[in-house]
Design a protein around this nucleic acid. Structure first.
Length: 919
RNA sequence: GCCCGCUUGGCUCAGUGGUAGAGCACUCGCUUCACACGCGAGGGGUCAAUGGUUCGAAUCCAUUAGCGGGCACCA
């Protein structure tokens, strides 16, 4: 067999995904067990405009690990993929394309434009689905969905109609966030607060009092960050308890420039501490003022239009001016009038469009809204009573989620876009509003066919909110909906807990009556190595595909999985490199097993019964089963880091460093015998004990590959396919009949009966012996190639026996010949010129070094060790001397401390004797 | 303003009421027949500061400092 020394990930990555996909390994139907438990994940649908970034790669890795794990555990698993139509983004992409052709979307008209978007989607959209195949994502492509699919659109209309009929969706005039660039309304969540650039200013404007008592120069000063809005002021508000202004409440002011008479009103909202304690009120252009306007029944004067330009109502000199130009002009005017009291620097935040960063203009506008109180209360009750969904990490996300719900306001649903789900509302010529599932239904309801459909579309997140059930066929009672809803776990980033997670819960509860997912796993953010958020504008993003190319998909996946959920990840290539090395280690371990596999097959070699098994065989099975146990525990707690660590150390430390090394004595020495036989005696039969040893090696390897598979699907499949003895019986019973693939084998489950603490303790003693001898060799500086002698005396027969049985292995690993007593009562004499060490348990090891030993240095070495032990002993003694320790600490703890002290005392004594002997 | 998180070896991070861990980096030695993307042996941390609870605190509590998030209608 020809296996290269270095693992080339690309080979394996190209080979297996297409085959898995072609054989439908990802679809739940591959599972033939009608009783199988179900595991479902719906993917957070990436934007159709998007391409894969590290955040996706992280989430997809976690979802794939969970899915592959459950699949191997025999679950009927569905990981459902799909994409989001991403209203604004997509419309912008296509608009830009059109602009290159010198066209606007209005030149095409709505119908042609949306056709064009669909065309774009078919040709250039969904890059990410190709990239997901590269990741190894085991999603069921046969169930791929798009939020604009007919089925999902139908669900959208159904939900809209039902909510409308219940009065939860309504149309009305409200102050909304308007993006003058995108020409659409935005929900509160699509607006971000940004500190104002280049130092904000607070302007103090004087409004003259409309005099009734002959004080012509009396005025009231208001402070504002937006002077231009004064053109739309319809009142000034003060706090009712503010002594300064109490007498003025009810008085009237003459609004400068426009010369409008406006009242002074009292409102609790006003903070007397801020500015002058008097607030100008512009109900048409500020959310707070809007509320105050409602409370005091103030008129709304609209002075800014949807393009952020001043209206005619702002006055002839201002009409048509940009809002910032108008601001300058208003300030000039105030200065001329001597009414600009002062301008001070003031840091504050302004609202910007999350997408295009244009400053939002609060405007009064007719839009569709969704009342959230009823839906919200149900979600809160679910958390309160059932603690669903269960957030991981629980802190802080559970609280973040509930706090937000508690303060939830109505959701602005409509968007002035063409790409999206057009609102299923029609207007009759006489102004009636008909909400219906289809135009046909609307006609019936209206009793006329002269209808105009509402031009707006729904917020993209409206269809996303239905994703967990719309993708499964709702509103029809499909088999998929019955089987796969509610889903098991949602894996997503913290930035969309409000936008998406909470809304799915509310809609799922409302329309299916069950939480859409049991658990929510919140991943951290992938940062660059300086701790900065990766972003396109900063150009500090790391492209997952580049990392795949450089280090392989498996190594990248392990890196991401190990960073797990919750905390942010500082991306560092070093980490990936170390897991790339791990992949190579796996490759070479398998290479060794395969190069020595003639005659062997997996799942053999342990027939003889455990009493006859060698120490290292009992030990590796114990380690393997403990590993299976802790991986299982870690995954069920979504502790991916722990799972990766456990597997890494099991494979590298236990399997490679010790088990393979121990096996070599049998596998290689016997191989020599075999060659000898073949050569000199013409024997062709391979000795059965050799085959057994090789089979045991392969068996453990195969189990390890299975354990690793959810994390490293490609390398494990590549190697597994090479193993002799894989066959139909290798597959999990639920997948009998499927093509052979490691992804359909049974995930190793811990067998308690194979966990063997005694074997672990004994092996530990052998490992310690080997390590101490190596340590002495290194410290004394004995050439690695030189074989020397060691003397090992133990205080008990059993240990002596264990060392004796493993002497060949000890020899191989330490390049020493071991001398032991035939009876422990008569220890082997140790020459004075020896380097020595005491093992835990009291065994002594000595390396006779006639002529080589530096007595002074050796004394120093032993002294150092003795001091270390003495320090430890002192600490333990002090602890035991404290009467309260014995009194209050648990008995086991006290005993443990005593035992440790006894062991240390014994070893210290031995060291003292050695030191004495050196003199 | 309110809420939350973090502070552990040079770096990136695990961790737990009872002997401080990993990977990388570092030092020394090895072309040992799976692997130099390797093997072996080492060095390195008063677990941010202070106080408290406890027989015992890096771990629990309080305060402080630094860093980072999230939320908020203060013009």
């Amino acid at each position: 067999m020809d296996i290269p020394k270095t693992y080339d990930p690309k080979q394996a990555e190209q080979r297996h995904y297409a085959r898995w996909e072609a054989q439908n390994c990802f679809a739940p139907e591959i599972n033939r067990d009608p009783q199988a438990p179900v595991f479902t994940i719906v993917i957070p649908p990436p934007n159709v405009t998007g391409s894969l970034h590290m955040g996706h790669a992280l989430q997809h890795t976690l979802m794939d690990v969970l899915t592959r794990h459950k699949r191997m555990c025999g679950y009927r698993t569905l990981w459902l993929p799909g994409m989001d139509h991403a209203g604004i983004s997509t419309q912008m992409v296509v608009t830009k394309e059109l602009r290159k052709e010198g066209l606007s979307r209005h030149d095409l008209g709505r119908e042609k434009f949306t056709e064009r978007v669909w065309q774009w989607k078919h040709e250039s959209g969904g890059q990410i689905t190709k990239q997901m195949r590269r990741e190894g994502a085991s999603v069921d492509w046969s169930r791929e969905r798009f939020t604009m699919d007919e089925g999902l659109s139908r669900a959208v209309r159904e939900v809209f109609v039902r909510l409308y009929e219940e009065g939860l969706i309504y149309r009305g005039d409200r102050i909304v966030n308007w993006c003058p660039n995108d020409q659409t309304v935005l929900s509160d969540l699509e607006v971000e607060k940004v500190p104002v650039e280049r130092g904000g200013k607070l302007y103090y404007l004087q409004y003259p009092l409309k005099t009734t008592n002959g004080k012509p120069d009396a005025h009231l000063t208001v402070a504002t960050t937006r002077p231009e809005t004064m053109l739309g002021d319809t009142a000034v508000a003060v706090n009712p308890d503010d002594e300064r202004y109490r007498d003025l409440i009810g008085a009237r002011l003459l609004l400068p420039i426009v010369n409008r008479e406006i009242p002074i009103v009292a409102d609790e909202f006003v903070d007397p501490q801020f500015g002058t304690g008097a607030v100008k009120v512009t109900p048409a252009h500020d959310p707070n003022d809007y509320e105050m306007g409602v409370r005091h029944n103030l008129p709304q004067v609209i002075v800014i239009d949807q393009f952020a330009r001043m209206t005619e109502d702002a006055g002839a000199e201002f009409s048509g001016l940009d809002r910032y130009k108008a601001r300058e002009k208003v300030l000039e005017k105030f200065e001329e009038l001597g009414l600009l009291e002062k301008v001070v620097d003031y840091e504050f935040s302004i609202s910007k469009c999350e997408r295009c960063k244009t400053v939002i203009e609060p405007l009064i506008s007719t839009q569709w809204f969704c009342r959230m109180d009823v839906l919200r209360d149900r979600a809160l009750r679910l958390m309160d009573e059932e603690k669903r969904p269960r957030f991981t990490p629980e802190t802080p996300y559970e609280k973040v989620y509930t706090d937000w719900l508690e303060n939830l306001r109505d959701w602005t649903l409509s968007r002035q876009l063409w790409w999206g789900h057009q609102i299923p509302a029609w207007y009759t010529t006489d102004g009636r509003v008909i909400v219906a599932r289809s135009e046909e239904e609307a006609r019936t309801k209206a009793g006329t066919s002269e209808l105009t459909q509402d031009a707006d579309v729904l917020d993209t997140w409206f269809s996303s909110a239905l994703w967990p059930f719309s993708t499964l066929g709702w509103p029809d009672e499909t088999a998929d909906l019955r089987t796969f809803y509610p889903t098991s776990v949602l894996v997503t980033g913290r930035d969309i807990i409000f936008l998406w997670v909470s809304r799915m819960v509310m809609m799922g509860m409302k329309f299916v009556g069950q939480t859409p997912f049991q658990d929510v796993l919140i991943t951290g953010t992938v940062l660059d190595k300086h701790g900065q958020r990766m972003s396109k504008t900063k150009g500090n993003g790391v492209d997952p595909l580049d990392v795949f190319d450089k280090y392989g998909v498996d190594a990248t996946r392990v890196t991401l999985a190990a960073s797990g959920a919750g905390t942010d990840i500082r991306w560092n290539d070093n980490q990936v490199e170390s897991y790339r090395n791990f992949a190579n280690k796996i490759w070479n371990a398998a290479r060794f097993c395969l190069l020595n596999s003639e005659g062997a097959v997996i799942n053999r070699g342990f027939e003889a019964g455990r009493e006859s098994w060698a120490l290292h065989d009992r030990w590796i099975l114990s380690r393997l089963n403990k590993t299976a146990e802790s991986v299982e525990r870690a995954l069920s707690a979504y502790d991916f880091y722990a799972a990766v660590q456990t597997l890494y150390h099991f494979f590298w430390d236990d399997f490679c460093d010790w088990y393979i090394e121990f096996s070599k004595e049998e596998v290689l020495q016997l191989a020599d015998t075999q060659k000898f036989n073949e050569h000199f005696r013409g024997a062709t039969e391979i000795r059965p004990d050799l085959i057994a040893a090789r089979s045991r090696l392969l068996t453990v390897l195969e189990q390890a590959l299975r354990l690793l598979h959810p994390f490293m699907p490609f390398i494990t499949e590549e190697l597994w396919q090479l193993l002799p003895g894989i066959g139909v019986n290798s597959l999990h019973p639920a997948y009998r009949g499927a093509e052979l693939t490691i992804m359909l084998t049974a995930y190793p489950q811990a067998d308690e009966s194979l966990i063997d603490e005694q074997a672990e303790a004994e092996m530990q003693a052998v490992i310690e012996l080997v390590s101490r001898v190596r340590n002495i060799r290194a410290e004394i500086g004995i050439k690695p190639s030189e074989e020397i002698q060691i003397i090992v005396n133990t205080p008990d027969e059993r240990m002596n026996d264990i060392f004796g049985r493993n002497s060949g292995k000890i020899r191989r690993l330490t390049r020493t010949l071991m001398k032991q007593p035939t009876q422990v009562e008569i220890p082997v004499q140790i020459p004075r010129a020896s380097a020595r060490a005491v093992l835990s348990g009291g065994a002594e090891v000595a390396v006779p070094l006639e002529g080589l030993i530096d007595f002074a240095r050796e004394s120093e070495r032993l002294n150092r060790e003795r001091e270390k032990l003495q320090k430890e002993a002192m600490r333990l003694e002090a602890q035991l001397a404290n009467p309260q320790f014995a009194e209050r600490a648990p008995v086991e703890k006290v005993n443990e401390t005593r035992e440790r002290l006894t062991d240390i005392a014994g070893r210290t004594k031995a060291l003292s004797e050695m030191l004495e002997a050196l003199k």
